[in-house]
Computed example of a mutant assay.
Amino acid sequence: MKFPEPLVEGRLIRRYKRFLADVRLPDGTEITAHCPNTGSMLGCQPENARVWLSRSDNPKRKLPYTWELVEAVPGQLACVNTARPNAQALEAVQAGVVVELSGYPAARPEVKYGAEKSRIDLLLSGHGSAADAWVEVKNVTLAENGQGFFPDAVTERGQKHLRELMTQVEQGDRAVLFFVVNHTGIETVRPADQIDRKYGELLREACDAGVEVIAYRADLCGSDGNPTGVLTLTESVPVILEV
């Protein structure tokens, strides 16, 4: 996917109240941007970091700017807008990039399902006699020494999703946990046992029960370290479950 307009660069002053971030623009103006991320954003909000914002001209919006990208460490970018991964995953599936999910002509987003009243991010169907694929998408931005970790905070919601996926497998469908790796410094993905031990245990249980786990990385920046303006998924990344 591609941003319709060039992103606006700034410097992060602070993030607060989860959904707000103060940013200093190049001309010295300080603005408040919407931060569309409910997680801890561990490692993705260093003081005075370079950030990039999209801007909306919708007069009904209280905050015209949205925080999209951050230079998490020098030369490495991360996409912190958790509204983006679902669209990234769908685009990659429809383009045939995700070989594990090829051959499905129909994709429905946000379908209600499960005993715990969840919504699946993507329901893929129409692949001949193949089972429907229930795809849960997660954004990975927590990085350490080339390794990506999920989640970045304890997530009861994420645990619920794993239980729901296991139930779909029991009912004869495919269930897929899709990690969208939105950090250019990540080479592998692991469960963050050090943050949410229960999630790691459930993820391994889900894999043993037949839930598929895949990860694909986005190409966020060019050789100069600046954003390319696209969030396209380009290649698979290994998922490592060993403790």
Rank of each mutant, 00 (worst) to 15 (best):
M1K: 13
M1E: 09
P6W: 11
P6A: 11
L7P: 10
L7M: 08
R11W: 04
R15Y: 02
Y16Q: 00
R18D: 15
G28R: 15
I31W: 03
A33N: 11
C44W: 01
Q45H: 02
W52F: 14
S56L: 03
K60T: 07
E68V: 06
L69H: 03
V70A: 08
L77M: 11
C79H: 03
C79F: 01
T82A: 04
A87I: 11
A92T: 13
Y104E: 00
Y104F: 07
P105V: 07
R108P: 00
P109L: 14
G114R: 15
A115F: 11
E116Y: 13
K117C: 06
S118P: 06
I120C: 15
L123E: 15
A133P: 08
V135C: 14
E136W: 04
V137M: 03
V137G: 10
K138V: 00
L142C: 11
A143P: 08
G146L: 06
F150T: 01
A153Y: 02
Q159H: 03
L165A: 02
A175D: 00
A175K: 04
F178I: 09
N182W: 07
I186H: 06
I186A: 00
T188F: 03
R204N: 01
C207D: 05
C207N: 06
C207M: 00
V213T: 05
A218R: 08
L220K: 09
G222E: 10
S223F: 07
N226K: 12
P227L: 08
G229E: 05
G229K: 06
T232W: 07
S236E: 09
S236D: 11
I240T: 13
